[in-house]
């Protein structure tokens, strides 16, 4: 069980950061993951009074406050249009609507969970994390770790014109994924990238370094790329699937995503 000694609704980011430097302090996101663990929290820091619960869309980017819920991300028309529905596909399998009304973007990214659909989706986009002390950090760099006592303020997504295709495999509805894959294509540069998560390790990016997908894709090219991607993606075993099965899924999901992306307007 999780016990909490003091609860503090932070009045500024500075205050939240200061409190978070003390041992035994924890920042509260939606608290769903935190609640699964045991432990004694000396001071629980609530960011919900700091105006971080909105998605702001400008010409160039989306600014997503740390306290925005997964459900807000899922139903936001601008994000839906920009990701061609991939954002919704990434999130809709996570437990249930009542859960997604609580789980936050900030907590989901900060946790850098191996199984994360959320991290997979954001890694595929041109996205950044804004930390109170650490400043602006690319999602890929943030995903590698560190920044443990910092405060995640918001997530930025640059609106680079891209196509996305998201797919995950689950043993049963609403369970954790066995593998996640988000393909992204920059149609102007013809560049493909694939974020692959639940390997079961943290999501990583696989790029088409050998230009297998260059110049229009045939089924054969997509398949060849799948084999290449599976070779580049370290996988492991856990109760949801073996490393071998996951590598097979990498092959299938990346090839499928490449073909879908190649069709253009998803």
């Amino acid at each position: 069980m999780l016990t909490i000694k003091n609860y503090k609704k932070a009045e500024s980011l500075e205050e939240a950061w200061q409190l978070n430097q003390q041992r035994g302090s924890r920042i509260l996101g939606g608290m769903l993951w935190m609640k699964m663990g045991k432990g004694n929290v000396q001071t629980a820091i609530d960011l919900s009074g700091l105006g971080l619960a909105d998605i702001e869309e400008t010409e160039e980017e989306f600014r997503i406050g740390a306290m925005v819920t997964l459900r807000q991300l899922e139903i936001h028309p601008g994000l839906s249009a920009y990701t061609k529905g991939a954002m919704k596909e990434a999130l809709r399998h996570i437990v249930g609507v009542q859960f997604r009304n609580l789980a936050t973007a900030g907590g989901s990214i900060f946790g850098r969970f191996g199984f994360s659909d959320v991290l997979t989706m954001f890694l595929a986009m041109d996205s950044y994390v804004e930390l109170y002390q650490g400043g602006l950090v690319s999602m890929a760099q943030f995903a590698r770790g560190g920044y443990e006592r910092d405060v995640l303020v918001q997530i930025l997504v640059k609106k680079r014109p891209m196509l996305f295709h998201y797919e995950s495999v689950r043993n049963s509805q609403t369970d954790f994924p066995v593998l996640t894959c988000c393909g992204a294509l920059d149609p102007d540069e013809g560049q493909y990238r694939f974020a692959i998560g639940a390997r079961p390790g943290r999501a990583i990016i696989i790029e088409d370094k050998e230009h297998i997908l260059a110049g229009g894709i045939t089924e054969k090219q997509a398949e060849d790329f799948g084999v290449y991607a599976a070779g580049q993606t370290p996988t492991g075993s856990n109760m949801r699937g073996s490393a071998q099965y996951r590598s097979h899924l990498v092959k299938v999901l990346t090839a499928r995503a490449a073909l879908e992306l190649n069709k253009g307007d998803l």
Partner: peptide, 16 residues
């Protein structure tokens, strides 16, 4: 319902 949105009450602090 918390402010008319369905949530899991087992996962929300009363203080919130």
């Amino acid at each position: 319902f918390l402010e008319d949105r369905p949530v899991l009450s087992c996962s929300v602090l009363a203080v919130r």
